[in-house]
């Protein structure tokens, strides 16, 4: 009996060694940085770092397909943030190339705000202005106080999350309050994209494409965690990094 117990302990130890080695595997997340404000990039870096990833800011627009392929080959996942800084004109075209390359290479994508809308558009969806599609909505998608846009640092409104979604598995809540800062939203939904969360006025707040390991969020988890310190939202980045890790290291095992 004693020997059996000893053997089981050793076996458990051996297995856990293997498990921890995989869990410790490095993940490098590429962030499409051009067009983002410095503060946003800071919060993204903090969120990804605290989620256990190394962060690489893709130096400039992937103007050519070869650039996009090379960038994506150097990283394990792609994060496309929101727009808020200068130099935003070429975002659309170049981020499409990055999305394409990421899908070709089978790497996960997380889109935030404008990034989330870009993902939707890549799959054939459309973006529309909130004042046109949801006029007179009681939900505030932009919060301006004393002339300052504070929506990104405010728990502004609730979203309802689909129980069958990955986002629900991550946050473990059907209803949660998020921040907000947008005049547009994903309106016509792209092919293969599922809407996984909405605000009370129906505005799309999150999308997923499980087949391609893609998630888009209209709100700003990097501000909720990075600036406001709401730990729940770190789980989104942890899941993104862990997913990348599993894909990366399962491939090498084959």
């Amino acid at each position: 009996m004693k020997r059996l117990v000893l053997f089981l302990c050793l076996a458990a130890f051996a297995v856990s060694c293997g498990v921890s080695r995989e869990a410790a595997g490095t993940v490098v997340v590429g962030v499409s940085k051009t067009g983002c404000s410095k503060s946003t990039l800071g919060y993204i870096e903090k969120s990804l770092r605290d989620a256990g990833a190394a962060v690489v800011f893709l130096p400039y627009y992937a103007l050519y397909e070869e650039d996009a392929d090379a960038y994506m080959a150097a990283v394990d996942a792609l994060l496309i943030p929101g727009q808020g800084g200068k130099d935003t004109v070429a975002r659309r075209v170049c981020d499409f190339r990055l999305i394409e390359a990421a899908i070709r290479q089978g790497k996960p994508i997380l889109g935030i705000c404008e990034g989330h809308q870009e993902i939707n558009r890549y799959f054939g969806g459309t973006t529309a202005k909130l004042s046109v599609t949801h006029p007179d909505s009681p939900v505030k998608h932009k919060v301006i106080v004393d002339g300052e846009n504070v929506g990104a640092r405010t728990r502004a409104h609730s979203i309802t999350i689909d129980k069958s979604s990955r986002l629900y598995k991550i946050l473990k809540k059907e209803r949660i309050m998020v921040n907000t800062s947008h005049y547009y939203s994903a309106y016509g939904i792209g092919e293969g994209i599922a809407v996984t969360a909405t605000a009370d006025d129906g505005v799309v707040e999150a999308i997923e494409d499980g087949a391609h390991h893609i998630m888009g969020l209209q709100f700003h988890p990097e501000y909720l965690y990075g600036r406001m310190g709401v730990k729940e939202f770190l789980s989104i980045f942890k899941d993104f990094v862990q997913q990348s890790r599993e894909i990366k290291y399962s491939d090498s095992g084959k």
Binding site: V143, V150, R153, T154, A156, M228, V230
Partner: peptide
């Protein structure tokens, strides 16, 4: 308090 009360409601 989780963060600044950026609005009166908060």
């Amino acid at each position: 308090f989780e963060y600044y009360a950026t609005t009166d409601e908060m």
